[in-house]
């Protein structure tokens, strides 16, 4: 059987917020290592890779590997029945066609459980090659979210240019052009610092819509890491973490737009 107890059930709500715009349904793959999900959006432009480590759970048991296909809109409905600070237990029997979510209030005086039907989903796993990225940008996640939101008003695409000077986000459309430049600042211990690890300058262009969807994960982590190399998909990574627990990560891959 599978059983996983998450001390902060609200984490799963935030994870769902971070993937529900991109995916209608997805398989959660359970193994001894933890819970993993890998899925592309319908148009095969972006990919979500979620990893929740077994160690992040208060209790974790997985006797045999299983894949639980879930409708994410249904899962959102169930998670709405919980409070953010409820303790969440997810459990399923081997070969079951339902998964059970149990919510316990912090003081233990309310327990609710919900069964959700599982789906048989065609798994289409992709092999993602190991890549040494030409530039890796680490920045505050809410700054990333604001930049993407602001520039999305201008055009359908956002160019990200990374160089020694820093990072420049640009978008052009009917009303004009927007540019937002971030300088590297190395002020130690600063929460709002931007760090660029650069092997070579890179400029790539991406669809604003997807970047906006990725930014929904900003609630999971204060930092976001953007990794870019010429002519390969962008990686946007958020740690899934609280001050006292490292749950894993959510990574988004986004295919670049091609120059005309």
């Amino acid at each position: 059987m599978f059983e996983a107890r998450l001390a902060e059930g609200g984490i799963l709500k935030k994870v769902l917020d971070a993937i529900k715009e991109l995916l209608n349904e997805a398989s959660f793959d359970c193994s001894e290592a933890g819970l993993q999900l890998q899925a592309m959006d319908n148009s095969h432009v972006s990919l979500v890779s979620l990893n929740l480590r077994a160690e992040g759970f208060e209790n974790y048991r997985c006797d045999r590997n299983m894949s639980m296909g879930m409708n994410l809109a249904s899962l959102v409905k169930i998670m709405k029945c919980s409070a953010n600070d409820d303790v969440l237990t997810i459990k399923a029997q081997d070969n079951a066609d339902v998964v059970t979510f149990v919510f316990e209030s912090k003081n233990g005086d309310r327990v609710s459980d919900f069964d959700m039907k599982l789906m048989n989903l065609d798994q289409e796993h992709l092999g993602i090659p190991e890549t040494d990225y030409a530039c890796v940008i680490k920045m505050p996640s809410n700054e990333f979210a604001k930049i993407v939101r602001d520039l999305s008003q201008f055009g359908e695409s956002i160019a990200i240019a990374c160089s020694k000077q820093g990072v420049k986000f640009s978008s052009t459309g009917d009303i004009g052009t927007g540019n937002i430049k971030l300088a590297q600042n190395s002020s130690a211990d600063s929460d709002d610092k931007v760090v660029v690890d650069l092997q070579e300058p890179v400029t790539l262009t991406f669809a604003s819509r997807y970047l906006n969807s990725f930014a929904k994960a900003a609630g999971l982590s204060e930092k976001v890491t953007l990794s870019m190399s010429p002519d390969v998909p962008l990686v946007v990574e958020f740690k899934v973490a609280t001050s006292d627990n490292d749950y894993g990560y959510i990574r988004y891959y986004l295919a670049p737009k091609i120059e005309d």
């Binding site: 592309m40 148009s43 095969h44 432009v45 972006s46 990919l47 289409e124 796993h125 992709l126 092999g127 993602i128 090659p129 669809a207 390969v232 998909p233 891959y253 295919a255 670049p256 737009k257 091609i258 120059e259 005309d260």
Partner: peptide, 14 residues
């Protein structure tokens, strides 16, 4: 025409 690539170009199905 949208010049958006898909991920299939870069990643291998397994």
């Amino acid at each position: 025409k949208d010049n958006q690539q898909t991920l299939i170009v870069y990643f291998i199905g397994t």
